[in-house]
Amino acid sequence: MTWLLANLETILLAVFGVSALAGGVLVVVLRQPMRAAMALISTMIFLGGIYGLLGVHFIAAFQVLIYVGAVMVFMVYVIMLLDPRDPAFRRRFSPLLFPGAAVALGLAATLIRGVAPGTAPAAAPAPARGFSLAEFATAFLNQYWLHFELTSVLLLAAVIAAIAVIRVARGDHG
């Protein structure tokens, strides 16, 4: 029991990681978009858990808030709006299933082979606790304030684009 408590963090990390991976596989494999969406939500939540375990709680919170709360809810609504008789809902895979899967496996293998020798630099500063919210906030608002402001421009552009797309959908090209 004490061993369990002592290694709780590692165990949780492993459980969350395996679950996130399983969710990812399900996203690719499940036929119904709604189920795929649910699988993706679960993956995201597990990832949020991993972030929490790593100590970056605010990222975990954003992960759940933005991804699950905004993006995926949006996605789910759209799925509900769509016509389930669409053949795309019944036929799962594209004609490139086997070559695609094979090459994707190759990609995974290649990438993982890249990290296999070990990543830790010999003399890493490696403060075990990672970093705090204060550090993040300082870096964010001192060094990256311009990037932060620019994201607002990006969001504005996205809003305008969305409106434009909707107007096209309505058929008035004003």
Partner: peptide, 20 residues
């Protein structure tokens, strides 16, 4: 679209393998 994505994927694998 699938084919383009596939080509991008294959290219990525090829480039990575080469650089490795």
């Amino acid at each position: 679209l699938h084919f383009y994505a596939f080509l991008a994927l294959a290219g990525l694998v090829g480039a990575l393998a080469w650089s490795w």
